[in-house]
Nucleic acid binder design. Structure first.
Length: 595
RNA sequence: GGUUCCGUAGCUCAGCUGGAUAGAGCAACAGCCUUCUAAGCUGUGGGUCCCGCGUUCGAAUCGCGGCGGAAUCACCA
């Protein structure tokens, strides 16, 4: 419509003022709610051609359009704004075509599909997932759905940080204090068990450091010379050397962790197409580094550590191989990136990683570029903000970390309590209820996190923030469930609604408002894909649900005596439930048929 | 100090490719269940869009400069 309007306006300006307008001067926008009309032309840019007041110019263009374009049923001019009214018949026809095709996303498809890797989750295998990982997983997964919906070939990848000093810490503490404890013997989820020993390590290490400081060492010396840390380092060296005993222990404990992660991923509803392990990519990283050293792209210190000098790029010196020859984080990421390019020849790799690593990715790209990899420009750091608690930041040392599994369980429990209190779901079997509580609890959690702009730090209040009113997942789910309920009722009454019999005259103002909202959907999705922001979709779903709820209250959908109006409203409800569930699907949120 | 990000109602957040009187929800108060699900709807109150300057017919939105907050600048990952 906007495109046709622009063409007509250009025509009008040509006829009235004898001037060829460039199309960027024609600004069409949706008319604000409190004014009469559907689309608004901003006439200010045309004043220099009309040589007239804004009001008069608007009048002239409005009159021309009304006479020459039958979709325009009227207009009004306020200050420099020409508000054009589109006839309800036009809207009804537009909606009829939409309802028949049901192809809401057609216009959001990109013309140049790309191969895009989305890396998300990226857990360390020394402790369970927490709230921060939840944000990461939800963003990554939703990004996958949004990008593939607009036509890209998207590969979900996960890089598991399964090697490094942190793993050795858990292993060491388990060796010392574990007494052979296993997930089976303890009944603990594997990732939680391993996490327990990581905490144990930190406790012992801390007390050793304190003792050494009391013995007269400064903090740095104490940290480096504490026996726990020394042993962990030795273990890492043994691991890199392939020591059989250490590797066996490592394999066993990692397998526990993976079983635990799989369960959490399954509960969250996320998955991966390709999982990388740093234990498999770090060697390739080392090779790349050594090769670059030979080409004098990097330099070596007397202690034989290898560095990149990035001062020319405005960055620092960056260590790439330790003096003892072991790899650091950056080494692995270099290897992983190169490995992936070999495998997929991606156009882009999107790293869903917290903003505390902004610097890391700047450096990563700079080093790869310097090494001559042109694809380094396709590496995108999708940087998201931290999740904070009302009391402040989550700190594992202070035990203020919100565990992912606990949180998911709590959300479902809350859903159960609220539902029962409201007296919903009488007459459902236990399994059916459980499934509905699961959808609602998870929907609340996912929506709450995804509705916030990913860039921003966000506050998560586990006890209060998740209520089920207002701008929440359950509100949107509720709206959907209501619509489904209307249709169950319609079936009972043997009403059938047909999109091809939508009548031109049955559209009222509220219906047109809703149709306008539906029209936005493809734009929203392509924006979300461009901006990498599921939040755009989330807030749109809320807006649609809120508008629909008002409609639901103001108008009787089933009981209208005029069958044309009833038909129109039924189809409208159906289309809206389609769009809402599609939108929520993009966020990875399931919709219950009843709640 | 360098770099990146953020600053909108008491709180949590939208709005930002410049457009009219800046929006929701929560919290507070007042109403609405014999009619398709009240997890809902309606109404009232609540604002120096951090500050200043600039660009413009027009700035929450763009630019520059401040102020405030966060992250990061490890032989941790």
């Amino acid at each position: 419509m906007e495109i046709i309007l622009k063409e007509k306006i250009r025509e009008a300006v040509k006829a009235l003022f004898n001037n060829d307008l460039s199309s960027d001067l024609i600004q069409i926008q949706e008319t604000r709610k409190d004014f009469k009309g559907d689309f608004t032309l901003v006439v200010f840019p045309m004043l220099r051609f009309s040589k007239n007041t804004p009001e008069k110019t608007g009048e002239l263009i409005g009159n021309y359009l009304k006479e020459n374009f039958k979709a325009i049923s009227g207009f009004n001019v306020i200050k420099g704004f020409l508000n054009l009214e589109i006839s309800n018949a036009w809207w009804a026809e537009y909606f009829r075509n939409l309802a028949l095709s049901r192809n809401y996303l057609e216009s959001s498809t990109v013309s140049n599909p790309q191969t895009i890797l989305v890396e998300y989750s990226s857990p360390n295998t020394n402790k369970p997932l927490h709230l921060g990982h939840i944000r990461n997983n939800l963003l990554g997964y939703s990004l996958f759905r949004i990008l593939s919906t607009v036509g890209h070939r998207v590969i979900k990848t996960n890089i598991v940080n399964d090697r490094g000093i942190h793993i050795c810490k858990s292993m060491l503490a388990w060796q010392k204090y574990g007494n052979g404890e296993t997930p089976e013997s303890s009944g603990m989820k594997g990732d939680h068990l391993v996490g327990k020993y990581y905490v144990r390590f930190e406790q012992e290490y801390k007390s050793q450091v304190e003792n050494l400081i009391r013995g007269g060492l400064n903090e740095n010396e104490a940290r480096n010379s504490a026996p726990m840390m020394k042993e962990a380092r030795e273990m890492l060296l043994k691991w890199e050397a392939g020591d059989r005993e250490v590797v066996e222990l490592w394999k066993m404990m990692n397998s526990w962790v993976y079983a635990g992660f799989d369960e959490t991923y399954r509960k969250l509803g996320v998955d991966f197409d390709r999982i990388y392990y740093e234990s498999e990519t770090y060697k390739f990283g080392k090779e790349i580094v050594i090769e670059a050293l030979k080409k004098n792209i990097l330099y070596q210190n007397p202690d034989s550590s290898i560095w990149a000098d990035l001062s020319a790029e405005g960055l620092d010196q960056k260590l790439l191989l330790r003096s003892d020859g072991t790899a650091v984080y950056m080494t692995q990421d270099l290897g992983t990136a190169a490995d992936r390019y070999r495998e997929y020849h991606f156009d882009k790799t999107i790293y869903v990683v917290g903003n505390e690593q902004n610097y890391h990715f700047q450096v990563l790209r700079a080093i790869l570029k310097r090494m001559g990899y042109s694809w380094a420009d396709g590496l995108i750091h999708f940087s998201y903000g931290m999740v904070e608690l009302p009391e402040g930041k989550m700190k594992s040392r202070e035990g203020t970390v919100v565990d992912a599994d606990d949180l998911i369980d709590e959300m479902q429990e809350t859903a159960r309590e609220v539902s029962l209190e409201l007296g919903k779901l009488a007459g459902f079997s236990g399994d059916e209820k459980q499934e509905i509580f699961r959808k609602i609890g998870l929907g609340a959690l996912k929506y709450f996190i995804l509705k916030v702009d990913p860039k921003k730090n966000m506050t998560f209040n586990p006890s209060e923030s998740i209520d089920f009113n207002g701008n929440t997942g359950p509100f949107i789910q509720y709206t959907y469930a209501r619509i489904r309920s209307v249709f169950r009722k319609a079936e009972q009454l043997k009403l059938n609604a047909r999109a091809d019999s939508i009548s031109d005259s049955a559209a009222g103002q509220k219906e047109v408002d809703l149709i306008k909202l539906i029209r936005k959907f493809p734009v929203i999705v392509s924006d979300a894909a461009k901006e990498h922001s599921p939040a755009i979709v989330a807030n749109y779903c809320y807006e649609l649900a809120r508008e629909y709820n008002q409609f639901y209250h103001d108008f009787s959908i089933l009981n209208d005596e005029n069958s044309e109006v009833r038909n129109f409203r039924l189809i409208l409800s159906d289309v809206i439930s389609d769009v809402i569930s599609k939108g929520m699907w993009l966020l990875g949120i399931e919709m219950p048929e009843r709640m």
